[in-house]
Design a protein around this nucleic acid. Structure first.
Lengths: 126, 126
DNA sequence: TGTCAACATAGACGTTCGTCGATAAATGAG
DNA sequence: CTCATTTATCGACGAACGTCTATGTTGACA
């Protein structure tokens, strides 16, 4: 079974700022170039699948912004599919992972998330 | 050619508030349900293609948040492909369109954009 | 009416995607 | 070492996607 909660808070992650450079300017500032659009679209695309969005939300809403895979796997697809989607989110830079014993914990990258939000909200506020 | 600028500011659009209900709570509030994820992912998916993101940014950064198709078609794909992507953005609720004589103008839906931004930034601020 | 320009639609084609079952890899327990 | 548990990888399959060319539709104007 899945009984890791005893160690879930045992070690806080270092959380060193990953120096995220913004993918692109706000969408209303000027038309995006091809390369800017390529980078930004990859992030939006990662959230553009219902299963991935549920997984991401499950991690983000979990305590300390991190969760064991076994805590969030109940989204109606098989275990390999869950693993596949978590890999995609990681490749997009939205999640990072760390192994702790038997379990693997996924954690949100807050800076990247803030960047994506600013790209949209600054656009809406114009 | 494309010489609509004379009438571009001639008539301001009504801009009646479309009463947008939020697609879902912030991603950190709680794990999204299946239906919430379905709705929200459809919006992110619409921005998950580089060409569509460039088109959307071109409209959003244009004066008054609206643009004629002929003003934004220079993204390296054919005219039918541009039309196809604009239709997708419209179906996702991110753009609306209106014909004015020969030209068709696309306009951003600011409320929807603000909602998407809040879903992300509130998540980042947690 | 006929013609031109702007934009949309239809159909086809190759690629990418999401999903699965089977299997491998890593770790801890005994 | 052996076994059970957790997660990742592999390979396959059908569906969805992005793109194109060809054609249709709409409105302006002579």
């Amino acid at each position: 079974m899945c009984q890791h909660r005893r160690m879930s808070n045992a070690k806080a992650l270092p959380l060193l700022q990953p120096a995220v450079e913004p993918c692109c300017p706000p969408l209303t500032e000027r038309p995006l170039t091809g390369e800017e659009a390529e980078r930004a679209a990859a992030m939006f695309k990662a959230l553009g699948d219902p299963v991935r969005l549920r997984l991401f939300s499950a991690v983000a809403s979990h305590e300390n912004g991190e969760a064991c895979v076994c805590d969030i796997s109940d989204v109606g697809v098989s275990q390999p599919t869950v693993s596949h989607h978590l890999k995609k989110l990681k490749e997009a830079g939205l999640l990072s992972s760390e192994r702790r014993g038997t379990w693997v914990f996924y954690r949100v990258e807050p800076a990247v998330l803030a960047t994506m939000g600013a790209v949209l909200t600054k656009a809406a506020a114009s």
